[in-house]
């Protein structure tokens, strides 16, 4: 049986008002369900714009978006917004509620979910992101990483099929950042949803199953991390640097050391190095 892509983009073009170049230019791609997908590209490459077309925050001038096989239209867009949650970049500017619990409930209130059900889901979601103890706190008293975890809880409480992190870690300190990334890994192991992380951090992208490289509103290439990062020339052409382990591997290969010809994460690289001349 052929799987239905969770998100399919067909020939989408979008130009911002007054912009000369289109932000998205005849772009087409497919994303499969229950994967961790990374969309990478430098600032202004169109990657965030692309994500905003998925739930109709931006309406493309031409082309079609399918969510779980269903065409995105004015009628279906509200349904899709209930199933696709986005955590945005700025922790402060997406916190709607006056307290942590209120904010988590906001999306459910919009969908008219009964209060008893909300109470259950708010607690479950806040426990999942380990923010239950802060439920009565006001946002002003939280750190950036904590606010992003609350935003994530708000998304989780809606029981979405897709969670998008739109550079959700880029304004956080290293600790807040690793908290969010750990949380995403755990969530992915626990639940069945698709995670789409939009990022220019290649280390974050390396955690994904599939990576899409976007530049000038085009899809440049896509692939699993091991093939993706091995194409360092293409990455450089589009303003990205491969992860540290790949840089080291590349330099070692260039100086004549015989390593395998694909991307290795840090552990794999270390293993390969220490077993290199092992004759067993």
């Amino acid at each position: 049986m052929k799987l239905t892509p969770i998100i399919e983009v067909r020939d989408v073009t979008y130009r911002y008002p007054y912009a000369e170049q289109p932000a998205l230019d005849q772009i087409s791609l497919q994303m499969m369900p229950n994967q961790w997908i990374a969309i990478v590209g430098h600032n202004g490459s169109g990657k965030s714009t692309l994500a905003k077309t998925f739930n109709g925050l931006i309406e493309p001038q031409s082309g079609e978006i399918y969510f779980d096989g269903q065409l995105l239209t004015e009628e279906t867009v509200w349904d899709v917004r209930g199933q696709l949650g986005i955590v945005f970049q700025n922790p402060d500017n997406q916190f709607v509620g006056a307290t942590v619990a209120d904010d988590v409930a906001f999306g459910m209130e919009n969908n008219g979910i009964p209060r008893d059900e909300m109470l259950v889901r708010v607690e479950a979601a806040l426990r999942q992101v380990r923010m239950w103890d802060y439920r009565h706190q006001e946002p002003a008293r939280l750190s950036g990483g904590q606010k992003q975890r609350v935003a994530l809880a708000g998304v989780l409480a809606q029981r979405p099929k897709v969670i998008i992190l739109d550079e959700a870690t880029s304004m956080l300190d290293p600790q807040g950042r690793s908290e969010i990334i750990d949380l995403m890994s755990q969530l992915r192991a626990a639940g069945d949803f698709t995670i789409i992380s939009i990022t220019h951090d290649v280390d974050e992208a390396a955690l994904a199953d599939q990576i899409f490289l976007i530049d000038d509103g085009h899809l440049i290439m896509q692939g699993a991390p091991d093939e993706f990062f091995a194409k360092s020339d293409e990455l450089h052409d589009h303003g990205l640097i491969e992860p540290l382990s790949e840089q080291i591997r590349g330099k070692l290969v260039a100086s004549g050391i015989n390593l395998s010809n694909k991307y290795l994460d840090e552990n794999q690289l270390v293993d390969e190095l220490w077993t290199l001349h092992l004759n067993m």
């Binding site: 905003k52 925050l57 917004r81 945005f88 700025n90 997406q94 709607v96 906001f106 919009n110």
Partner: peptide, 12 residues
Amino acid sequence: DLTTAMISRGYR
């Protein structure tokens, strides 16, 4: 930003 976040969370 807030408007975008609210709409994307289903506020009508």
